[in-house]
């Protein structure tokens, strides 16, 4: 076991972890943050995508021990973040999910695309989603929801100060 300290969704945590434990399994089991899903465990499906130090990473290809000192943000940690709020509403309105297995990572990936200004067209959104597989929706409604949320996020909330 190795001692680590990290911040998960704003809370500082000190813990002991075995070296072989992936960040995904660490979040899902001891930390009970089950919104992070595991599909393939070798980087291909994208279901485990979360933010480490603000950037999307595959939590199946990240070791918990290697995250000592890092800021981790999972789908549970977005609260009332305005871009995530716009995405949630747009996914709801546009039926951007069916079983929901891919959805947390789709939202996190979409959040990053909007943050980096890479959601300006359907082509750009589809390219940005190439690493997130959905077996249900056929992607059409996910892409439409992200396009809508990108427009809403650019305008800002109606009651913004």
């Amino acid at each position: 076991m190795t001692a680590i300290r990290l911040t998960i969704n704003g809370t500082q945590i000190a813990d002991d972890v075995p070296a072989r434990l992936s960040l995904a399994d660490y979040l899902r089991e001891p930390r009970n943050l089950t919104g992070t899903h595991l599909g393939c465990e070798h980087g291909v499906c994208g279901a485990c995508t979360i933010l480490v130090d603000g950037e999307p990473v595959r939590s199946c290809l990240t070791l918990a021990v290697a995250c000592d000192g890092c800021q981790v943000r999972t789908i549970e940690g977005f609260g009332s973040d305005p871009v995530m709020t716009a995405l949630r509403e747009a996914f709801h309105r546009r039926h951007g999910l069916q079983c929901g297995f891919c959805t947390p990572a789709m939202l996190i990936t979409a959040h990053d695309l909007i943050r980096r200004g890479r959601a300006a067209s359907e082509t750009e959104i589809r390219l940005g989603l190439a690493g997130n597989i959905c077996r249900c929706t056929g992607y059409t409604n996910i892409v439409a929801a992200i396009a809508e949320a990108a427009v809403a996020a650019a305008k800002g909330p109606p009651d913004a100060e």
């Binding site: 980087g43 950037e55 999307p56 990473v57 595959r58 290809l61 990936t109 690493g131 997130n132």
Partner: peptide, 9 residues
């Protein structure tokens, strides 16, 4: 090359 989440690492 690969996907953004992989390119970040």
């Amino acid at each position: 090359l690969a996907y953004r989440a992989i390119r970040n690492r």
